[in-house]
Amino acid sequence: MGRIHKSITAGLVAAACLFTFGATNAVADNHTKGKKIAYLTATTSNPFIAKLASTIEEEAKAKGMEVTVLTSPFDPALQSQQINDVIAQNYDALVITPISERAAVPPLTAAKNAGLPIFIVNSPLAEGTEDLYVSFVGENHAELGKVTGEALAEALKDRKEAKVALVTGSLAEGVAPRRLAGFKEVVEKHPNISIVATEDVKWDTATAERVAGQLFARYAAQGGLDAVYGMADNVAHGVILAAKSAGVPLGTNEDELVVVSSNCMKFGIDHIRAGEQYSTATQMPTRTGKATVAAVVDFFEDKPVEKHQFLEAVAITKDNLDTYAEPCTF
């Protein structure tokens, strides 16, 4: 009888625990179920943006929320109008990757005044606007620039004089200027490295390929470039395609072009494996998307939400490629 009594008691306790767990989950779902989220971002023709948007949609759907994705081809005026439309359409939260760190401020101020909770993803707003949003989720882009600068310095450490060109993302918004500043801060400590050109290709692969081809032609008479910083792996991919077309050898030997990046994608993983790219870095859209939705859920559940959720910035080279290959392949 003692053993039977203990078994019944254990069963009742387990049932009670399951009931409590289920009730807790139900309460959590009640906070998010049916919530309408607007996600405003750049063009999803960019692979990073496309994966980030789809991750936010999938993660939100799993929590019973509905996400509407509105895109803009790096047009701040269009995104400002989209923010105004979101205000008028009674969404429960606004998640945004700003096209411009300054142009987005006036409409986001109107959104906040309308009582709309705002979450900034990946691309920060201008300094002094922290009161506009609940949370920023993404990498510290100055840190991404620094780890890329350190990787480049390591690759060029044996060259007496190294000419470097920068092929960047959009310098009108918050990511590229911060990444550039971090990169320059490190490179300036290495007198053998000189930045000879900076070209804004707005994260576009085809434009990067065209601009890189022009750079190779421009500097051919001066012995060529030693390295190119393609700010994202799709940009670096365009640089590598141009190098191959121009007959510029790729690698880390004295007469080879070193290519570094700071926004990992399948392009970069493949190029690093092939020895055509020296490094990339840990900006991973699935990680960012999951952290974003988690922050929105915490907000709806009245849990504390960190103001700045900075994700880890690490340089990726052949030495640690296997650790990051899967989350960087999309």
Rank of each mutant, 00 (worst) to 15 (best):
A114K: 08
A212R: 07
I96M: 04
E127I: 07
I4C: 06
E161M: 13
T286M: 12
A243P: 04
S100T: 09
P107M: 08
A217I: 06
V196W: 09
K160A: 12
C264D: 05
H141S: 11
D204T: 09
L94I: 02
A227R: 00
V167P: 09
G138W: 05
V27D: 14
L257I: 11
S123A: 10
V314W: 10
F216I: 04
P124Y: 03
E161H: 09
G230N: 08
G224P: 08
E306H: 05
D75V: 12
A243V: 01
S54K: 11
L215E: 05
V314E: 10
F310R: 07
F310Q: 12
A197K: 13
D255L: 06
K163R: 15
G275T: 04
V305A: 08
F21V: 09
Y39M: 03
D255T: 14
E57A: 07
I87P: 00
F19Y: 09
T71G: 03
F183W: 01
T317E: 00
V187P: 11
N90P: 08
G64H: 07
E312K: 15
Y219C: 10
T71M: 01
D29C: 04
A28H: 00
S100E: 02
V259W: 14
Y229L: 10
Q277A: 11
T252M: 14
A104V: 09
E127C: 05
A220G: 05
E188I: 09
I269Q: 12
Y324V: 01
V293L: 06
P117Y: 00
F48N: 06
A153E: 09
T71H: 03
A217K: 13
G275Q: 04
F330T: 11
V259Q: 05
P107L: 06
T43E: 15
E130P: 13
V175C: 07
V167F: 10
N140R: 12
D92Y: 03
E188K: 15
N30Y: 11
A208C: 11
K51R: 15
K307W: 11
V27H: 14
K33G: 05
D158R: 08
K63L: 02
A77P: 02
L78R: 03
G247V: 01
A162N: 05
K266G: 11
Q79V: 10
A208Q: 01
L257C: 15
A15W: 04
I49E: 14
R218C: 09
S194R: 15
T44S: 13
D92G: 02
A60N: 11
A176T: 13
V260Y: 01
